[in-house]
Design a protein around this nucleic acid. Structure first.
Lengths: 190, 190
DNA sequence: GCCTTTCAGCTATGAGTCTTAGCTACGTGA
DNA sequence: TCACGTAGCTAAGACTCATAGCTGAAAGGC
């Protein structure tokens, strides 16, 4: 029997594709194995198990998202950077729902690349805020607010939480515009 | 063998408690059955299956959350109502993580009580916004923004997404204050 | 060119999940 | 008191992840 030529990287990449297609929570080792035309236990030669596979998909996705955010914000400032990064964030979550869901897993401290990717992603958002001169605790608060708004919007959108027929695109534009208003006044008066 | 006295309501209630303890995604029928001292297939006399149980936990939780939001906002207006509702939202998600996760399931159109609970929850948030005189598409956009910010914050918080040591409580207060700023300027200028 | 070693992928197996089928005996209504 | 409905049971099947141990293809040393 000819070898299938599996590698950890290929298994993770295929797993990420399948997660985007069927949803992260429905991803199964049997599915990945079938995609390679291989018996399910064979995957254990390349991945420690389902949980490890999910964690590595998370690492991959976090790195991709960080890159997308950094690319979008590069060469822009203030409102332009905010809009570009927000749009890139939503676009990634929409194009790669399974991967995006995986990014919500906390990085394994034992995986330096994963931890670094997480820091790059948060850093890309924090960098956008630097245009408003925020630092210290204010920058932390604003970063958390921005992440919350974006994450909340894309997950609600994806989950079908916006039932009304009105344009979701318009709502997103308004959300981003509102964020800009809030940032201009940050920190908000008590 | 004495009957255990199961009912659909008791099964759902116990399921919700267990979901809060172990996490919604780890809730298992075997667990619920064990909590009642009953064989696992016995549950099928009261619940159509795991997915139906999760859906009914969702209905229960959505109703509870809607009540909590309505109670918090009752008798308050504008900033007071916003702060009270936001605090109640976060408190519910923190106290009942499993139930809160269940609220993200889209209501089954065939379950009118569930649909109504969802509308009550969204309506409670929309009612808060009425203090700012929003209506039409603006109200929809603002409701979606508010839901996104709150949902995003509590899910990131719960998932351990706020790794920095700075106070999460303070960040939440700042988020709510920023929402108030944004609402005062709604719709934000393009 | 041959032999050895490594290891990728295999089969077999076990524990756990949800789910259905069919039985039994408890509790209730007549 | 008796019959019926049904709550909860056991048994069984299809699926999951995971481990153990085998086999044969590929790669390296001489």
């Amino acid at each position: 029997m000819a070898r299938a030529g599996l590698t950890p990287e290929r298994v993770v990449a295929r797993g990420a594709e399948l997660a985007d297609e069927v949803g992260l929570e429905r991803l199964t080792l049997a599915m990945v194995a079938q995609a390679f035309g291989v018996a399910q236990p064979s995957l254990y030669k390349h991945v420690r198990g389902l949980d490890a596979l999910l964690q590595q998909i998370s690492a991959l996705a976090t790195a991709e998202l960080a890159d997308a955010l950094a690319d979008a914000a590069a060469g822009r400032a203030r409102g332009d950077a905010l809009r570009a990064a927000a749009t890139a964030y939503r676009a990634y979550a929409t194009a790669h729902p399974g991967r995006y869901a995986a990014t919500q897993r906390v990085p394994d401290p034992a995986d330096p690349a994963h931890v670094a990717a997480g820091e790059r992603a948060v850093g890309a958002i924090a960098a956008v805020l630097r245009g408003w001169g925020l630092d210290g605790d204010d920058a932390i608060d604003a970063t958390r607010a921005l992440r919350s708004a974006l994450h909340g919007f894309v997950t609600l959108e994806r989950a079908g939480g916006f039932g009304m027929p009105q344009s979701v695109d318009r709502s997103f534009d308004q959300l981003v515009a509102a964020l800009e208003v809030a940032l201009a006044a940050w920190p908000a008066p008590a």
